Amino acid sequence: MGQIDTRLFLRQFGWDDFWCGTLLGGCGRPLRPKRYVTRVCHFAHEANPGRDECHRTTHSADSADHLFIKAHATRWLAAHGHEVRGELRTLGHCHGDAVDFRLPRTDMFLRFELHSEDYRTWRKAADSLGAKEGRIEWVCGQGDHLARDMLARRGYALLVRCETEGNDRRVYIGTLTDGRETAWEPLDQCRMTDKGLVTPTLGTLRAGGVVRR
């Protein structure tokens, strides 16, 4: 954070306690905001000799995207009549490898898979989930090679990314198709139907017969 951002942040949240989030791969110990003139302002652990070192490996804004996706998707699904709670999944990387939603009303399972697995592991997980949950809607992280498999199977793939807006991260869904640039649209402009997640672009492509239902 810059000095001005830090000053504004502390003015708004300075009386709060801050912790190294375990859902971000952190250690759960207290943090203190540090203001500098010649260095980047940041949060730091309190000095406490003898404590184990924190092993959190990522500190960028996107390291919390699984939490933003969980929160925003929960509200979005509620607006579509699905009162459900997201579940964070670990697939071998961190707490935020995937965010799952079970939608009993439509017998559907929605997964935002943010860290790709190798194909064999993913295929095994997909078969297991399919047998247990029924229809699965997959939304992949950017650059996920599994999206290419989705594209080959059904003619399109859904991607997810977040962009910073103030103190929030807004969720965008991308529609990937052959020969077209990925179209990114806000999650709140998409629809959750009994056939799956439909972006405005996907709805248009289906209506024009470019992508099958």
Score class of each variant (00 low, 15 high):
189 Q>H: 06
140 C>K: 00
193 T>H: 04
142 Q>V: 15
178 D>V: 06
152 A>V: 12
160 V>A: 12
187 L>K: 09
177 T>K: 04
150 M>P: 01
194 D>Y: 02
188 D>G: 01
141 G>M: 01
137 E>M: 14
151 L>W: 10
149 D>L: 06
199 T>E: 09
202 L>D: 10
137 E>D: 13
152 A>D: 12
184 W>A: 12
145 H>R: 13
162 C>K: 07
178 D>W: 03
153 R>A: 14
179 G>T: 06
177 T>Y: 09
158 L>T: 08
158 L>S: 13
200 P>Y: 01
177 T>G: 07
183 A>L: 07
184 W>D: 11
173 I>M: 08
187 L>D: 09
151 L>A: 10
185 E>A: 09
141 G>F: 00
170 R>T: 10
191 R>E: 14
172 Y>C: 00
135 R>N: 10
167 N>S: 13
174 G>K: 03
154 R>L: 02
161 R>H: 11
167 N>R: 13
181 E>T: 09
177 T>V: 15
197 L>F: 02
163 E>Q: 15
178 D>I: 01
195 K>L: 00
188 D>Y: 15
138 W>K: 07
193 T>L: 00
202 L>G: 11
181 E>G: 15
166 G>N: 07
165 E>K: 13
140 C>A: 02
156 Y>P: 05
185 E>M: 14
190 C>W: 08
165 E>D: 14
180 R>Y: 06
146 L>Y: 03
149 D>V: 14
166 G>C: 05
167 N>H: 12
173 I>H: 04
202 L>M: 08
169 R>M: 09
141 G>C: 02
171 V>S: 04
172 Y>S: 01
154 R>P: 03
191 R>Q: 14
188 D>Q: 12
184 W>V: 14
195 K>H: 03
179 G>F: 03
135 R>K: 15
143 G>W: 03
186 P>Y: 10
162 C>V: 15
190 C>Q: 09
174 G>Y: 04
197 L>D: 07
175 T>L: 05
202 L>E: 08
196 G>H: 01
183 A>S: 13
163 E>K: 13
175 T>Q: 04
142 Q>K: 11
141 G>W: 01
145 H>V: 15
173 I>F: 04
183 A>Q: 05
190 C>H: 09
147 A>E: 06
142 Q>C: 15
158 L>E: 09
138 W>T: 08
137 E>A: 12
153 R>M: 12
180 R>E: 15
168 D>T: 14
179 G>S: 12
192 M>L: 15
157 A>W: 07
192 M>V: 02
181 E>N: 05
138 W>N: 14
190 C>E: 09
196 G>M: 01
183 A>G: 02
190 C>F: 07
149 D>F: 02
163 E>M: 09
176 L>W: 12
190 C>I: 05
189 Q>K: 02
191 R>F: 04
190 C>Y: 06
201 T>Y: 00
143 G>H: 03
137 E>I: 15
188 D>L: 11
200 P>S: 01
148 R>H: 13
184 W>Y: 13
